[in-house]
Amino acid sequence: MELILKEDIIGLGYKNDIVNVKSGYGRNYLIPQGKAVIASPMAKKILAENLKQQAHKLAAIKAEAEKKGEAIKDVALCIAAKVSATGQLYGSVNANIVAEELKKLGHDIDRKIITMTDAKTVGDYTAIVHFHKEVEVAIPVKVVAENAPAEKKEEAAPVAEAPVAEAPVEEAAPATEE
C-alpha cells in the first residue's frame, strides 16, 4: 500500500514522503490516526504543488535543524547506572534517559526523535538524533557502573587535601624568616 506521510515517523519516513507499507498497518493505524493518506495520483499532484510552494519554508526548517545539530555535535554523554556483579544493568539505558541527560546539559530535545538500541550492559553506544530527514547527529553514549565514579572521586579527594595542608606551611615558613 502506497501512502503519503503527513508527519515524521521514525523508522518509516518523514513528512511528505511516499512510502510503501503493509496494507493492515496503513489501513488500521496510519490512516485512522491521521498520520498518512493514500497516495492516489491526485494526492501526488497536490503534494508536488505544495512542495514547490513550500520550498523556501522547508529550507528555513532545514537550516534551523542544522543549527540545532551543530549545537550538540560535540556532546558526549557518560551515564552512570546500577550494575550487577556480572556487568549487567538493572534496567536499561534508552532514548528517554539520553533525552534527560541532554536536558541537564541545556539541550531540550524530544525523546521521540532519538533512536538508540537499549543498553543493557556497561560499554559504549551511539544515540542518533533525527532533527530533519537530512540532518542526523550521532551522540556517543558511555554507560558506566555507578560505583566506579565514586571510587575515583575517593582517590582524588586525598590528593586534593594534601596540597591544602602544605600551602599554609609554605606561607608560614617565609613569614618566620623575615
Rank of each mutant, 00 (worst) to 15 (best):
9 I>P: 05
10 I>S: 11
10 I>N: 14
13 G>E: 09
15 K>L: 04
17 D>Y: 01
18 I>S: 14
20 N>R: 14
21 V>D: 09
21 V>P: 04
23 S>G: 13
23 S>A: 14
23 S>L: 09
24 G>I: 14
26 G>T: 14
26 G>C: 06
27 R>L: 13
29 Y>F: 14
29 Y>H: 00
30 L>S: 06
31 I>W: 00
32 P>S: 10
35 K>P: 06
37 V>F: 02
38 I>H: 13
39 A>C: 10
39 A>H: 00
40 S>V: 03
43 A>T: 07
44 K>G: 10
44 K>H: 12
45 K>S: 15
45 K>E: 15
45 K>T: 13
46 I>C: 08
46 I>Q: 11
48 A>C: 12
49 E>S: 03
49 E>M: 14
50 N>T: 14
50 N>L: 13
50 N>H: 11
52 K>Y: 06
54 Q>K: 09
55 A>S: 09
55 A>G: 12
57 K>V: 15
57 K>P: 08
58 L>T: 07
60 A>R: 12
62 K>L: 07
62 K>D: 02
65 A>K: 00
66 E>C: 10
66 E>Q: 07
67 K>I: 02
69 G>K: 00
69 G>S: 07
71 A>E: 13
71 A>R: 05
73 K>H: 04
74 D>T: 12
75 V>Y: 08
75 V>F: 04
75 V>C: 00
78 C>D: 09
78 C>Q: 15
80 A>R: 00
81 A>K: 11
81 A>E: 10
82 K>F: 08
82 K>L: 11
82 K>T: 15
82 K>P: 10
82 K>Y: 15
84 S>W: 05
84 S>V: 08
84 S>A: 14
86 T>P: 10
87 G>W: 00
88 Q>K: 03
89 L>W: 02
89 L>R: 12
90 Y>E: 15
90 Y>L: 11
90 Y>R: 09
91 G>L: 03
92 S>F: 00
92 S>M: 01
94 N>H: 06
95 A>T: 04
95 A>P: 11
95 A>C: 12
95 A>H: 15
97 I>A: 13
99 A>V: 09
101 E>F: 10
102 L>C: 02
102 L>G: 03
103 K>L: 15
103 K>R: 11
104 K>G: 11
104 K>I: 08
104 K>M: 14
105 L>V: 02
105 L>T: 04
105 L>K: 03
105 L>P: 02
106 G>K: 05
108 D>P: 04
108 D>N: 09
109 I>L: 14
110 D>P: 15
112 K>S: 12
113 I>T: 02
113 I>R: 00
113 I>M: 06
114 I>E: 02
114 I>L: 10
115 T>V: 01
115 T>R: 07
115 T>K: 05
116 M>F: 11
116 M>Y: 07
119 A>R: 02
120 K>M: 13
121 T>L: 09
122 V>F: 01
122 V>T: 14
122 V>W: 09
123 G>W: 01
124 D>N: 13
125 Y>E: 07
125 Y>W: 06
125 Y>T: 08
126 T>K: 04
126 T>H: 09
126 T>V: 05
126 T>C: 11
126 T>W: 10
127 A>C: 02
127 A>S: 06
127 A>P: 08
128 I>G: 03
128 I>F: 04
128 I>T: 11
128 I>S: 07
129 V>D: 01
131 F>V: 08
132 H>Y: 13
132 H>D: 01
132 H>Q: 04
133 K>W: 08
133 K>T: 11
137 V>R: 02
137 V>E: 06
137 V>A: 00
138 A>W: 05
138 A>Y: 02
